[in-house]
Design a protein around this nucleic acid. Structure first.
Lengths: 231, 231, 231, 231
DNA sequence: CATGAATGAGTCTTCATTCAT
DNA sequence: GATGAATGAAGACTCATTCAT
C-alpha cells in the first residue's frame, strides 16, 4: 500500500455498522451517477444527492472524490481477484482443460455478477489511481493462474506467467465488449462457451510445445517480414 | 456517421493543405497533453498552447473540446480498422492459420504504430462519445474478419461473426496491458507470437467442430452447475 | 464590556472548577492549533480535538468560534494589562527613570511569559473582534502609565497621556519583531536593556521640556517642508 | 526570491499597460474589501466584484488569493522600504538628530501616504506569506538605517544594527495605534513630533555611551531581580 | 451532559467558449 | 483570420453549528 493509496483510503469508520451501510450507499450512488452521467459529470455533489445525503457527509467517509471512486473500483476488482484466486487454488493439479474452464467461469461470474457496476468502472480504471489498482488486480490474478498452470500434471510451460497473462488478457476484451454493447440477452452463455474454448485451445497449444507450437510460430515468422512494431 | 458525430466533426476545410497540417498538429498536441496531464486536465487552452496556436484558432477547426478528442480517437481507430480490413481482404481464401497470423500481425502493427497515441486514447474511448466510436470500429473489424473467415477453404464456422468478435476481443486485453505496463522492451515480439498462437488455436478449435469442440464444451457444461451469470 | 463582547463570553459557569479547567484546556488547545495551522485553519473541530473533547462540548463553553478566540486573546491581554497596572501603581511617585524601567520590565515580562501564546495571538488581534479588545487593553495600560507619569516628582508633562501612548507603542514593535523572528536566544536581555534606554531617554527628554524639547522640535519643523501627511 | 514567492507572483502581463491598470484596480479592490469585510471575508469573488470584473479575470493576473494579497502587501511594504532607504542614503554623514528626524519623517510619510491601505494590510501581514514579506522589508530598512548610523560623525555605536532595529520597532507600534484608532484629525502632526523626539533621544542616549547610558542601565539592573523572561 | 455525524452555505479555482481587437 | 482576455457556471472541498442519541 503506497502513499497514493493511503490518501485515497476511507476516512473514518463511525459506529462501524452504520458506516458500512453508508459506504455501500455511496458506492451504489457513484455507480449510478457514473452510468447516467459519465465520469466527468460524476461529481461529489451528484453522488451525495443520489445517495440521499449531503456532500459534507460524503467527505466524512472519503477524503476526496478520487478516494471514493478508487474505493468503488478497488472493491470491484478485489471481488474478481478473490474469486479467481479461489478457483485457481481449487484447481491446482487438475487437468489443463479443467483449469481453463474453471478460470474462465470464475472470471466471468465475478465480472458479470453486477454488470452495471462493471460497466460503470471502466472509465474509472483509466484514471490515474484506477490504472494502478487495475494493475495490482491483474498481478494477483496472473500470479494465481501462473501457480495453477505450474501445477498441471498434463502440461509443462516454459513461461507459465506469460501464458497466464495472455489468458487473462484474452478474457478482458470480450467481456468489455459484452458489457458495453446492448448485450443480446442470453448471449452470455455462448460467450462463456467460446471463451472456455479460446483459453482451452490456447493452453493445449502450449501443452505439447515441440510439435504444435512450431506450426503457428513458423507461420508467424513468415508474416513478420514487413512490419515495424514500434515500442 | 450519425448526428452526434456530425456535430463533432471539424468545422471547415478552407485551404485543405494548411487545414490538414493544423489538424494534425492539434491531434499530436492533444495526445501529448493527454499523456502528460490526463484526460481531465487535457484542456483546450493547454492543447492550443502545446500546438503553438491560440484557443481561438483551435475553435476554428473543431466546434468544441469533445469534437477534437473524438477526432483524434476516430483517426486512431480508423487507422486500425483500415489496416485490419486490408489484411483481411488480402487473406480471403487463405488457410486458417495464415488468416489468424495476418489478423494478429495487422492489428498489432496498427495499434502499436504509435504506442503513446494508443495509450493516451484509452481514457478518451471511455467517454460518452468515445464508446460509440470504438463500437463502430469494432463492428468494421468484426465484419472484415467475419468475411475472411467465411472464405476459409479449410474450415466451416457455425457463427463466424461470433468467432471474429472473440478473436478481436482476445487481442484487445493483452495489447492494453502491454501499453500500460512499463513494457519490457522486446517483449512485444513474444507477445505477438503468443497472440498468433492464441488466435490460431482458437480458430483451429473451430475448424473441426464436431469432435474437438465437444470436449471443451462438455467440460464447460460440467462446470456450469452453480453459477448465475447475470446480464 | 460592550454588547459585542457579551455575546462572545463563555456561556455557563456550572461547576466553577471544572469549567475553569476546561476553558483553560480550550485556550491552550486553541493556541497550539493557531501556531501549527494558522488562523484560517484554526477550526473548532481541530481545537476540540486538540483539547481532547468533542466539538459539542466546546460549544458548551463558548457560543461560537470567535467567542473562543476572543476569550483567549482577552485573557492574554488582560494578563499584560494587569501586570503593567500593578507595576505602574507600585511606582507612583518614584523617579522617572525608575518608572521607565518598571514599565518596560513589567510589559516585557508579561508579554514574554508565554511567547508561543503571544505569537499565536497576533493574527487573532487583527480580526474584527480582536482589534477592539486590543484597543481596550491599550487604553487600560495608557491610563495606568499616564497616572504614574503624572505622579512623577521630578517631571512635569504637558500631555502625559500622549507620552504614555508613545511609550507603550514604542515597546510593541520591538517585542513583535522578537517574537516573530528566530529569536537569537539571550537576545531578550539585550532587548530589555535597549527598551529601558529608549523609554528612559524619551521620558527624560520630556522632563525638562522648555529647553531640551525645543531642539528636536525645531529640527523636525525644518524637515516638514514638503511632506503631506494624510490621515 | 524563494519558491513560495514564486508561487504567489503575478501570472501574466498582457499588453503591459492594461495589465498594470488592472492589477492596480485589483489592489484597490482588495484593500476596500479588506477594510469593509475583514481578512476572512476578503474572498476572491468579492474582490473581483468590487474591482468590476469576473473571478476568472482575477485569476488571469494572480495564481491565487494569497498571491493577490501578497502582491498588495509587497507593493505597500516596498514603497515604505524605498522611501526609508532613500532618506537614509541622503542623510549619511549628517548629524544624529538630523538622521533621527529624517528617518521618522520618511517612515511616517510613506506609511501614512495611504492610511486605508496601511490599515487594511495589518491582517495580511499576519498570514503565512505576509510575515515573510514584512520580515524582508524590515531587514531592508534596518540595513539602511544601520548604514546611516554608522556614518554619523557625532556618534559611535557599538551595535548600530541593534539600534536601528529598536528605532524602527519604536515607530511601528505608535503608527499602528494611530491607524487603528479613530485618529483625532491633526493628531498626526503631534505624533510625528513625539516620534522624532523618541528616536532622537534614543540615538543621543547612545551617542555618549559611557556616562549617559550607565544610569538607565544601572536602574534596569536593579529591577531585573525577580522576572523570568522566557524565550 | 457529552458526543460526533450531518448539514449545506460558502470558498477557491478551473475551464470551455466567445468576441472585440 | 488569428488572438487571448473576459466570463461565469460548475466543481471540489471545508467548516461552523446543530441535535439526535
Amino acid at each position: 500500500m503506497n502513499a497514493v493509496a493511503a490518501t485515497l483510503k476511507p476516512r473514518k469508520t463511525p459506529v462501524q455498522v452504520r458506516s458500512a451501510a453508508t459506504v455501500e450507499t455511496l458506492h451504489m450512488a457513484a455507480i449510478q451517477v457514473l452510468l447516467q452521467e459519465g465520469l466527468s459529470r460524476c461529481t461529489t455533489t451528484r453522488i451525495a444527492e443520489r445517495a440521499g445525503m449531503s456532500v459534507g457527509s460524503l467527505y466524512q467517509y472519503y477524503p476526496n472524490r478520487d478516494g471514493l471512486l478508487a474505493g468503488v473500483l478497488e472493491k470491484h476488482l478485489e471481488g474478481i481477484a478473490d474469486a479467481v484466486e479461489r478457483a485457481c487454488h481449487e484447481h491446482r493439479g487438475k487437468q489443463l482443460s479443467q483449469m481453463a474452464a474453471a478460470f474462465v467461469v470464475a472470471f466471468l461470474a465475478a465480472k458479470l455478477r453486477d454488470p452495471e457496476e462493471a460497466k460503470a468502472l471502466y472509465a474509472v480504471a483509466e484514471e490515474r489511481g484506477g490504472a494502478a489498482l487495475a494493475a495490482r488486480m491483474r498481478t494477483r490474478i496472473v500470479a494465481a493462474v501462473t501457480a495453477m498452470l505450474a501445477s498441471a500434471p498434463d502440461a509443462q510451460f516454459d513461461d507459465p506467467a506469460m501464458v497466464a497473462k495472455i489468458a487473462l488478457g484474452a478474457l478482458v476484451g470480450p467481456v468489455q465488449t459484452l458489457l458495453k454493447e446492448p448485450a443480446p440477452a442470453r448471449f452470455t452463455a455462448r460467450l462463456e462457451k467460446e471463451l472456455i474454448l479460446l483459453v482451452t485451445a490456447y493452453l493445449q497449444a502450449h501443452q505439447s510445445k515441440p510439435k504444435r507450437r512450431s506450426k503457428p510460430a513458423e507461420i508467424a515468422r513468415r508474416h513478420q517480414k514487413s512490419k515495424a512494431v514500434a515500442s
